[in-house]
Nucleic acid binder design. Structure first.
Lengths: 214, 214, 214, 214
DNA sequence: GATGAATGAGTCTTCATTCAT
DNA sequence: CATGAATGAAGACTCATTCAT
């Protein structure tokens, strides 16, 4: 479905994408019907199929644009950082902030990862993101800034911290709300600590103290 | 649906639960129909509705039992650990191992968290788990083992690490596979490092260096 | 869709087949919707899909049963005929009578032959029928009863006569109606004459007179 | 829709007709959408509805032109034939050749005959053709060239032979292919033989031998 | 003349759930 | 307890046709 669209058409497409994103995030992908979308927009059913091949393709478009946008944001965030660790921290903060600003997309990606139809797309996107981030971890190891452990696992761990703290932020009770920046900071700190590991300070129990990357 | 069941009935219920778990994990909750389940088991549809009120309740039962089982496992794991940090590490290792042994349930919980119908249940379960774990974090802070930061956020961060590394383990290419124990260890180490934070060693960029729990 | 059916189920299946046959013949395959069929029968839509995978499969079932039934009839008709030519004549008469009795199926097969989805099935059925009939033509040639011409083409020509005269019979104005038997007879006579060809009697124009099977 | 068209318009109309003919023949009338036609031609939907009232009218136009063209061809073919039987043979040969040259139209007419919407048009066209041909049969009977049997039925029988052998020709395996001329000849011969009937030569079984036009 | 956009009734199909036997 | 049959609302998607520009 790569129709050439007029300006009006382009506008409609945006509108569909935006409205569908909101509906999917609110009620879920499966429970949201194409009818819900077009009715909510007050247009005929055909409009939907003029712009998208089917419901799946629409959702894929949403995911793809989300991935692109997040990546763009991260690239910008890293621009001024002088060393690997500050690049990592900057990336984490950018990631948390982007997710906070795009609550809906964050929710959608989380679902997409659990559904056969979309998990491949999500995984591929994540692999790119992981590869991006892992480069800085490898750099940090090479520069002796952090102990030499499996960089892929370290990177995944950081992704876990980031996404979980973002989720935590997004589901906070409004009255107890903490700022995005604080959460972003917590994530960055936790990750830097995690990269360094507990060893130097003899913390943790025996297995912890004795283990190192094999 | 709390029917009193005969032994044979109890057996049937188990069978349904097990088969549904496998199907849901393989194809997803929505795409798996009640017909798929009963046909796969070679029984009539009535059987299903004799043991469960409906599809949703069946899925909730699966989730509830999973949460109970994981919690049991964690409690056992903590038994012999002498101090807060080793209790935390033990809990993380237990969690990773349990998830690795129950790949299907792990997948199901991930989905459940994204669906309105079940996210409440998952959230409630997680809150219990978070509260459990957070106690040890608070203890560690009080005992001066780790810096004084927001324990809830720290705990969530650890959950992120644990679940993400588990996911990483489960999706590894078979040929490159790393053992569960190694992953569990990585998770534990990363978390302990994260709890300690980077401060003591002046790692990270400025914002990192200057930040502390406000 | 080879479900094991109870007696009641078998009965329902028949009912669906019969009603659908009537509707398809009256309004055509495409214009008849599944809804038309189930509504006409006063049953729920699910009933249809309990017995058939889809509309196409239902139609295929109708066609297959029709082919089987016609073939059975022809086999019976040939039983007592002593020589190839009388077997041919008997087959033609049986064919015309069967079609007259099963107007609807005749119509359906005609349509099916024109639709991609079904033409293969029809063609395969016809090939069997042609092979059956051609054997007698070959026999007749070998026994010197008719001139030696391409038996496949002769057989196809006879099929043309039979089906066209059947169509003629079925579309007659009621007031001018001629009996099936007379039509069957005309078909048989025409075919026998056709098999003999015009040669012996010097009929036709030059090209006709001079041509023989090359 | 009898708009007065410019030359360019006339050209466009031809183009639509030709392309639609090809599509209808390839995929069928129902499965071919108006969108398929205009997209295939790379024009907007408005174009279609500028030249035709609707899809049905387009198809009727195709059919009408086909009938006209075939009739023209037959008229020409009969021109030089001196007697009724050779006129009949010439008509048959012309018919087979025309169909072979217009495979697509032949296919379309076959479908049209099975669809309520168009069967009337086809039937009317065929009645004209039958009347044309029947005149020669009647002549042949009056001149004592063939036995006196029901001329309408004889004519229909000849139509059956002609169309079936044409179909046979069109669906031949390319490697086993026989020329159009040979098929046309077979058709002509078979029909002349059929018109003469088997009587004179005592062929066939009893019912055949004893029957004559009642 | 021509285009892209829009309409919406209608199509096939699925599926959770109920129920007579 | 168990089964096969039935229900019907709901879903995804199609397509002939219309129309503003």
């Amino acid at each position: 479905m790569s129709r050439r669209l007029t300006d009006r058409g382009e506008e409609r497409r945006r509108q569909l994408l935006a409205y569908a994103t909101a509906r999917f995030a609110e009620h879920g992908y499966h429970p949201t019907s194409v009818a819900d979308i077009v009715n909510g927009l007050g247009v005929g059913k055909g409009v939907f199929y003029w712009y998208f091949d089917n419901k799946e393709e629409l959702f894929r478009s949403i995911l793809r644009e989300a991935q692109l946008d997040l990546r763009r944001r991260q690239r910008d965030a890293l621009a001024g950082a002088p060393d690997p660790l500050s690049r990592i921290a900057a990336g984490i903060r950018a990631s948390v902030r982007w997710s906070a600003e795009h609550h809906e997309l964050f929710t959608l990606v989380a679902f997409a990862a659990t559904d056969d139809r979309f998990s491949g797309l999500v995984r591929r996107g994540q692999e790119v993101a992981v590869a991006d981030a892992m480069r800085h971890v490898t750099d940090a190891i090479e520069q002796g800034l952090i102990p030499d452990r499996n960089p892929l696992e370290l990177t995944r761990a950081m992704f876990g911290v980031t996404s979980e703290l973002t989720r935590h932020f997004l589901h906070q009770e409004p009255e107890a709300a903490v700022s995005v920046d604080e959460i972003a900071e917590t994530a960055a700190q936790f990750c830097l600590g995690g990269l360094l590991g507990p060893d130097a300070r003899g913390a943790g129990d025996q297995p912890v103290a004795s283990s190192s990357r094999s």
